[in-house]
Amino acid sequence: MTVPLWYYLVLSGLIFLIGLVGVLVRRNIIIILLSIELMLNATNINFVAFSSYLGNLAGQVFVFFALTVAAAEVAVGLAIIIALYRHRSSINVDEFRLLKW
């Protein structure tokens, strides 16, 4: 007896949407990065669910790679945030409009 696949798909869709709304709604850059983590986790749930239901381990290998990409993204993203904070003493996205026209 296992949980049907679509339960997992609905759950991961919900978590992905929460992350998407978080990226669009928040003004703090660190929280925006946290929301990106939410979205990456949602895709991981999808990968593992399909891998388990279709009997193919490639999905789990890809989750492993997605995890390393997430770690790299966090390292570089937080370094950029520290550099930004040093220059502007703020991490509020509304105050960075240098590249806007």
Binding site: V3, Y8, I30, L33, L34, E37, N41, N44, V48, A49, S51, S52, Q60, V63, F64, L67, A70, A71, V74, A75, L78, I81, I82, Y85, I91
Partner: peptide, 30 residues
Amino acid sequence: LLNAEFLFAVQIIVYAGAILVLYLFVLMLL
């Protein structure tokens, strides 16, 4: 629940152990 014990361990070690500590570290630094 999905029979992925390896990813269970990796998720806790890498995400909860490393990535989140990095976030909290930067939050407290700033």
